[in-house]
């Protein structure tokens, strides 16, 4: 079963992330991914995440596919105009990529090249629409394509956003223009997530809840302060703060596993964003009983 079929099957899905390196040494990332081959249903490859210049998502997805892994190609609107975006999507298809996650992307001033010209010619919604068009064999101006790509399209949603309403409106719109699954921002507050799910259920589209392994109490506090829609409950912060230096990863994994176990009843999968801790993902899956 490929990822698209698994989505339809109703199976509880697990996706993880591969962050391309800043440079060309890619073997380590690929090896780590390979370790998860049988445990994970898809690998998101981030596209210059946080506006930091790195190896490209397209190339890494292609390499994953070559190794028989299932890549989810993340594509953002910050760096390419509508011509390049459409073209890269076609390139992705011929390089064996079948799943695409479409995002707007962070603003360049947040990254390591703040002087860059932001493009944002399209945004996530319009790019989803355009991609759906490509799937039907037309470019965005209505010109016929010679052979059409077939993608399983995904999008993102922030279940902790406040106010939530605009997110839901936008989510609905994304579905309207072709999103077939969603991955969410990191979830720590299950109550909030449950409320979100109650409202999002009506759309009938699979949602994979986001999981980020906590690395420290500082990280938790930082996210609470800075990251939109993320609120780490005090009890987790305390657990992290009390953990001894060598045991923080263990505690983080324990928290992650707890969240995943609880999410099983709420949504159709989890999306794990290891942020450099790819090596702990197998352990996390084991702890949460998904191994």
């Amino acid at each position: 079963m490929n990822f698209s079929e698994k989505l339809k099957s109703g199976k509880f899905l697990i996706t993880s992330e591969v962050g391309p390196p800043k440079g060309i040494n890619i073997d380590k990332s690929l090896d780590e991914a390979e370790l998860l081959k049988e445990k994970v249903d898809g690998f998101n490859v981030t596209d210059l995440q946080s506006s930091v210049m790195r190896l490209g998502s397209l190339a890494v997805c292609h390499l994953l596919a070559k190794r028989g892994l299932e890549p989810i190609f993340q594509i953002i609107c910050r760096d390419r105009n509508r011509l390049a975006l459409q073209s890269d999507l076609l390139s992705a298809y011929v390089l064996g990529i079948r799943n695409v996650l479409i995002l707007t992307g962070d603003h360049p001033v947040l990254g390591d090249h703040p002087e860059a010209k932001p493009v944002f010619d399209l945004d996530s919604v319009s790019l989803l629409k355009v991609t759906s068009g490509l799937i039907e064999g037309k470019d965005m101006k209505g010109n016929d394509l010679d052979g059409k790509p077939d993608f399983c399209l995904g999008a993102v949603v922030n279940p902790g956003a406040d106010p939530l309403e605009p997110q839901l409106v936008k989510m609905e719109k994304k579905i309207e223009v072709g999103a077939r699954f969603f991955q969410t921002q990191a979830v720590y507050d299950l109550k909030k997530f449950e409320e979100f799910m109650k409202k999002a259920e009506q759309f009938g589209v699979p949602i994979l809840g986001g999981i980020v392994i906590l690395k420290s109490s500082g990280m938790a506090r930082y996210m609470n302060e800075k990251v939109a829609g993320v609120s780490v409950p005090e009890k987790y912060i305390k657990m992290m703060a009390e953990a001894k230096k060598g045991e923080r990863a263990k505690v983080g994994i324990q928290i992650g596993a707890e969240l995943i176990r609880d999410m099983k009843d709420l949504c159709q999968g989890v999306h794990i964003m290891p942020l450099g801790w790819e090596r702990y993902v197998p352990e996390l899956l084991k702890a949460s009983g998904l191994d």
Binding site: T104, L110, D123, A228
Partner: peptide, 21 residues
């Protein structure tokens, strides 16, 4: 909107404030 988004928010706002500025 610093990204000039015309199809809804990017989701990055925290406490109603823009994440870019």
């Amino acid at each position: 909107c610093p990204k000039s988004l015309s199809n809804g928010p990017c989701g990055g706002a925290k406490n109603g404030k823009c994440e870019v500025n």
